[in-house]
Structures are given as structure tokens and as C-alpha cells.
């Protein structure tokens, strides 16, 4: 199993790091290696302790919850029987499962597609320095600073079918009121729109900094060659941004899969299951009801982790192929 960041940096640095492996002979090299290993792990100790202390337990606990048949009584007093994958089977056969799976995929991919495309377009736009561009770019990041409970509530007022400003605006365009949050065919679209809005700043920051790092000489050379802006983007900017794009998409995906607050505040996953994703479903099972169902809730949460894991492996795979 190879790791993400090392493959990643190998791909971006080419073979510049070879100096470390400079040939040295026999024993000297081995002892240097051992001391280097020890030093490396000394530097890694804080992180390792941290990971074991703060990640291992929650993860173990969630796994345990999902593999036993917990009632509220056994949750408190222990002694829940081990039931293997029964919770997973139950969850997979639940009528909500297919709906939640499709919604999770749609939510994640549509959000990512738009966040990334818009983020990229804006990054390219702001990279051409013009008056006020630094301040405007900074302003674009403001949505990021708002607590999610505030931005999600604001979106739900804006999209309210009766008093919302969006329908008020559409009315002037001669379009009748849309039941953004309450119609089964629109509610998923509404939460996606809000999520795209929230995700644009993150994409803009990462991609813009990537563009900044492209040596100016390259695009100047292209300009001399007579390349237009589109050709320049397609031939230079985009290919050179590939590693940055990969991180951005990877992180974006991890964060989008987990999104729960926005959907919960705006629609509670409803009406019925129209905007339910794995994240909101897991929350609803574990917390959104008077009687918590910890086992199935944890099972859904773990399915989410597995989905992200698969995506992570695919990412590493792609990285490695690019590096090779």
C-alpha cells in the first residue's frame, strides 16, 4: 500500500528528491539509514500518538456499534449481542438505501463539478491582474467564514416558496413560484446549489494559488508563440495545474461526502427521502429521532467511510500512474 502524499509529491517533483538516496557504500549507508529512520520516526511521533489517541477510538467505537445489536438499554449497560453484518444487511435492504446512495452520488459529483469548474474559471479570471482584483478575490472568500448554520438558514429563506427572494426574482422573469425546498423534484437541487456556493471559495483559493505558482515565463513564451487565451489555458495552465486539481478534487470530495449540516438545516433530507444522503441518513438514525438507532446509524456512517476510501484508493492509483 503506497501513500498518497509521497506519490503525490513524487509526481510533482519529478526525480528531484534523488539526492537523498545518493550512493554511499555499505555500512556507512546502512547506519545513516538507521539513524535517518529513527530521526524520521522521532519527527513522526507527535502525529502517531495523536492519531492513535484521537482517531483510533472513535473509529473503533463506530465499528463496534455497527456490528452489534444495540438497544438504548445495552448502549448504556453493555452486553449488546454481536450480530456481525446484520445492521449492514438491514440498512442495505431499507427502502431508503437506494435513494440515499443515488442522492449521495448526485450531490457529491454535481457539487464537485460545479465547484471545481466555477472555481477554476474564477481563478483564471482573477489571475489576470486588474484594478481591484485582490480585494474582489478576498471578498469571494467571505461565504467561507460564515458558520454553516447561518448560511444554510439564509439559503432556506431565500428559497422559501412563499416569501423567498429567489421566487420573487423569478416572478419578474415571468416564472411561477418553484417549491424549491418542499417539492420532491427540486429539494436535492436546492441543497446542491447552496453547497456549490459554499464550496466555491475553497476551490478558488487552491486553484488560484496553483496558478500563481506557474512560472510566468511559460505563459509569456506561449503569448509570443501567438497562443490565444483558450489555447494558453488548455495547453499550459490546465496541464500544469493537474496535481493541484487532483488535490482540490480529492479534498473536495472528502468534504462533500461528509456534508450534513447544510442539508439537515435546509430540508432535513426531505420531503420524505428526496434529499437524503448517507450523511443525513446516518444522523437521522442516530440522533434525529426520539429513539436512537445507534447500530444502523453507525453502519451507514461506515458505508460512507468505505465510499470515501474507495475514492481515495482510486486517487492514489491515478497519481501513481501519472508519476510512472
Amino acid at each position: 500500500m503506497n501513500n498518497g502524499s509521497q506519490t503525490l509529491d513524487r509526481s510533482v517533483r519529478g526525480r528531484a528528491g534523488a539526492a537523498n538516496d545518493a550512493p554511499a557504500s555499505g555500512r556507512a549507508r546502512r547506519s545513516r539509514n538507521r539513524s535517518s529512520q529513527l530521526a524520521a520516526w522521532a519527527f513522526l511521533t507527535p502525529l502517531t500518538v495523536y492519531l492513535l489517541a484521537f482517531y483510533a477510538y472513535p473509529l473503533y467505537r463506530n465499528l463496534d456499534l455497527s456490528l452489534r445489536d444495540y438497544t438504548v438499554y445495552s448502549f448504556v449497560h453493555g452486553g449488546a449481542p454481536f450480530t456481525g453484518f446484520a445492521n449492514y444487511t438491514a440498512v442495505i435492504h431499507d427502502p431508503t438505501f437506494v435513494k440515499a446512495l443515488v442522492n449521495t452520488l448526485l450531490f457529491t459529483f454535481i457539487s464537485l463539478l460545479f465547484q471545481f469548474t466555477i472555481g477554476m474559471a474564477l481563478a483564471v479570471f482573477f489571475a489576470q491582474h486588474f484594478p481591484l482584483s485582490p480585494i474582489l478575490r478576498a471578498l469571494f472568500l467571505v461565504p467561507w467564514l460564515l458558520p454553516l448554520i447561518v448560511s444554510a438558514s439564509t439559503w432556506s429563506w431565500m428559497l422559501d416558496s412563499g416569501s423567498g427572494v429567489v421566487n420573487y426574482g423569478l416572478h419578474f422573469l415571468g416564472i411561477g413560484p418553484v417549491n424549491w425546498l418542499t417539492s420532491p423534484s427540486w429539494s436535492l437541487a436546492s441543497v446542491i446549489i447552496a453547497n456549490i456556493w459554499i464550496g466555491i471559495p475553497f476551490n478558488l483559493v487552491l486553484l488560484y494559488s496553483g496558478i500563481q505558482a506557474i512560472p510566468a515565463t511559460l505563459s509569456e513564451a506561449a503569448a509570443i508563440d501567438g497562443a490565444g487565451p483558450w489555447t494558453k489555458f488548455r495547453r499550459i495552465t490546465f496541464p500544469l495545474l493537474r496535481p493541484v486539481s487532483a488535490i482540490t478534487l480529492m479534498l473536495g470530495m472528502v468534504y462533500t461526502l461528509k456534508v450534513f449540516d447544510i442539508i439537515w438545516i435546509m430540508t432535513k433530507g426531505g420531503p420524505v427521502d428526496a434529499s437524503t444522503t448517507f450523511a443525513t441518513w446516518s444522523y437521522r438514525l442516530g440522533f434525529g429521532n426520539l429513539l436512537p438507532e445507534f447500530g444502523p446509524g453507525a453502519a451507514v456512517g461506515n458505508l460512507l467511510v468505505v465510499m470515501a476510501l474507495i475514492a481515495g484508493l482510486v486517487y492514489i492509483r491515478v497519481q501513481r500512474r501519472q508519476a510512472a
Binding site: 500500500m1 498518497g4 509521497q6 513522526l44 473509529l59 472528502v254 450534513f260 456512517g301
Partner: peptide
């Protein structure tokens, strides 16, 4: 620094653990 420059054995597993860690939904944590 260690992962970038000191090439520790087992660093790969650690990086992968980080990747996984990032994916655990907040409410579970």
C-alpha cells in the same frame, strides 16, 4: 518534514491512515 524528506519506513501506512482519518464524518468523531 519527516514524510517529505526523511523517507521513513511505514510512512506510507501513516499517510494512508491520515487519508482515512479525514473521511470520518464529524458526528462520528
Amino acid at each position: 518534514y519527516a514524510l517529505a524528506k526523511l523517507r521513513p519506513k511505514g510512512g506510507g501506512i501513516l499517510s494512508f491512515a491520515l487519508l482515512v482519518a479525514q473521511m470520518i464524518p464529524g458526528i462520528i468523531m
